[in-house]
Computed example of a mutant assay.
Amino acid sequence: MANPPENPLKLLTVLFNHKGRDSPTEVRNVLLVVATLIAAVTFQAGVSPPGGVWQDSSSGRVPGEAIYASRTGPFYVFLVCNTLALASSINLIISLTWGFPFFLEVVVATVSMAVTYGSAIFAVTPKSDEQFRWLLFTGFVPFLLRLLIQMGKYYLFVMSK
């Protein structure tokens, strides 16, 4: 067995180097499974927030509002990170199924899931327009980044001719 590299960066490169061990189809399938699992977990976390929701107004709280929302800072960190994870996984699912049979159905299902997630978040979060603007922006970040990357690739391709 060969000696491992002494440089930690080289060791990580050796450990995580793909070197064509798996076919692109196998990699796509694994990524699709991982993205689907992330979407399922983040969707569930958004629909059923940690700690649950207030059941009645006897405590002076709004019934149906997330209990975790009483800790404003941590709750919004949770919402932003959860929304970013869901949007990223939806973006990955759409990218990996692009051009395949039933692609339209995948898009309809994922967009419907995103709208359902948004309505659930709206229902359990204390009403504040400012936070919802940030959450909406967070949901679009993965799609905007992908668009910018594709535009950059196209620009570099055109400029190289």
Results as ranks from 00 to 15, higher is better:
T116L: 15
T116V: 12
T116S: 14
T116M: 15
T116A: 15
T116K: 10
T116G: 12
Y117H: 05
Y117G: 01
Y117A: 02
Y117I: 03
Y117F: 13
Y117L: 04
Y117V: 08
G118T: 14
G118L: 10
G118E: 09
S119E: 14
A120T: 02
A120N: 11
A120K: 11
I121V: 15
I121M: 14
I121H: 03
I121T: 14
F122E: 11
F122Y: 14
F122R: 11
F122Q: 12
A123Q: 13
A123S: 15
A123R: 12
V124Y: 00
V124P: 00
V124I: 03
T125S: 11
T125L: 03
T125N: 04
P126M: 01
P126V: 01
P126C: 05
P126R: 02
K127G: 00
K127N: 06
K127D: 01
K127A: 01
S128G: 06
S128M: 02
S128P: 00
S128N: 10
S128K: 02
S128V: 04
S128E: 06
D129H: 05
D129P: 00
D129N: 10
D129A: 11
D129I: 13
D129V: 07
E130Q: 08
E130N: 07
E130A: 12
E130K: 06
E130R: 12
Q131H: 15
Q131D: 09
Q131P: 02
Q131R: 12
F132I: 06
F132C: 06
F132R: 03
F132S: 03
R133V: 03
R133Y: 08
R133I: 03
R133H: 04
R133W: 07
W134F: 08
W134S: 02
L135Q: 02
L135G: 01
L135E: 01
L135R: 06
L135P: 03
L135H: 01
L136W: 02
L136S: 07
L136Q: 06
L136G: 08
L136R: 01
F137D: 00
F137R: 06
T138E: 06
T138L: 05
G139I: 08
G139C: 08
G139S: 12
G139F: 05
G139E: 06
F140L: 15
F140H: 10
V141M: 08
V141Y: 07
V141E: 06
V141I: 15
V141K: 05
V141T: 09
P142R: 10
P142H: 07
P142S: 07
P142Q: 10
F143P: 07
F143M: 08
F143C: 03
F143A: 13
L144P: 00
L144R: 04
L145A: 14
L145Q: 10
L145V: 15
L145P: 00
L145Y: 11
L145K: 02
R146T: 09
R146W: 11
R146L: 09
R146A: 14
R146F: 11
L147H: 12
L147K: 12
L147I: 08
L148V: 04
L148D: 01
I149M: 09
Q150F: 10
Q150C: 06
M151E: 14
M151D: 07
M151Y: 10
M151V: 13
M151Q: 15
M151C: 10
G152V: 06
G152A: 03
Y154I: 11
Y154D: 10
Y154E: 12
Y154A: 14
Y154N: 05
Y155V: 15
Y155M: 14
Y155E: 11
L156D: 12
L156T: 14
L156F: 13
F157S: 11
F157R: 14
F157Y: 15
